[in-house]
Amino acid sequence: MKTSTGDDQRQKETPSPSPSPKQYAVVKHLTQNIQPNISSELQLLLLTFSTGIQDATTVPDYHCFSSNQTGNTIFLCLGLVLPHLNGDVFVTANIGISLGLFLGAGWVTGQLSHIIGPRKRWWLFLCNFIQTCLVFAAAAVQYIHGTEIQGPQALSVIGLLALAAGSQVVQSRSLAMTEISTAMATAAWVDLLIDSKILAYHNRPRSRRVAFLLALVLGGFVGAFIYREVGSGTALAVSGAGKFIATVMYLFATAEKDCDEDSVV
């Protein structure tokens, strides 16, 4: 019987192929941390605009918000105390699924961000890509089944949008730009009004809040116009397109400098 000990030994001694410089560059690029800068602000504002479009369609269609959970929280309280208003002023099931999935998505994304790194390029790209797919899926449900205020189709659309929104709002914290929450406007209005330097020429936090509020209002107007003219399915598709652009931008966003580079004198 022939032995293969020599062949096995040579196979063990054969070194595995090392990554090519191109592969190494791709991996390094994807594992870099995104630098919070003007480009990141534009991405968050684009996401805010897309959020405004979504809420402008879910309120008239389903009597709830997909992103603004302040309103949903109050509606949920009303639904528990005044159930006879269900279906006219709000839909309790829709509000419950929106609030619950929003909080769940925010919790999962936030906790994983602590482990992975909140500003890792590949992580931000992946999160935004999944969110984009969820919004397009919601638009597809509306195109196929239409809109009904209650029922499985309504819960599907609201659930998909709430999952996307809950994951999305984590990004303003990840990028250290809490002035652009991408969804909730109340804190931005208050912080803007009480800013002691509201009229100062150089005031970045003030400028971010103003830009955020303008983007949210503009998204609301655009969403309402599209809803009136061609329907909510198209409005959600436009919102998804905006999120897709923001997703692609993460591939080209400026990275933070390495510690070694920062230490060079």
Rank of each mutant, 00 (worst) to 15 (best):
A237Y: 11
S18Y: 09
Q150N: 14
Y227E: 06
L44A: 00
A185P: 02
A241D: 02
F90D: 02
Q168V: 00
T70W: 15
R119W: 01
E179N: 05
Q168T: 00
R209W: 02
I115V: 11
F49E: 04
A56P: 01
Q69F: 15
F125R: 11
N128V: 02
Q35M: 14
K197P: 01
W122I: 12
N72F: 10
F90I: 10
G87E: 11
K2F: 02
D8Q: 11
G79W: 07
N37S: 10
A183K: 02
M177F: 00
S98H: 09
N128H: 13
Q43D: 08
L192D: 04
L76F: 14
I95F: 14
V210D: 07
T132M: 05
V190Q: 00
G52F: 14
S18F: 10
A56N: 03
T70R: 06
D8C: 10
I158Q: 07
G166P: 00
L112H: 01
R209F: 00
Y201C: 12
E13P: 06
A253N: 05
A56R: 04
E148P: 04
V265F: 11
F125E: 04
K197D: 12
P83F: 07
T182I: 05
V170E: 02
W123S: 04
A211I: 05
L44Q: 01
N86A: 12
H84F: 12
I116S: 05
G52P: 11
N128C: 05
T109D: 06
V264E: 15
G151I: 11
T234I: 11
T186I: 12
L126N: 01
T234H: 10
W189D: 00
L101W: 01
E41R: 09
Y250S: 07
R173D: 06
Q69I: 13
G220T: 07
E179D: 08
T247E: 03
Q43A: 07
K12L: 14
R209N: 04
A185M: 11
S113L: 05
A237R: 01
T48Y: 13
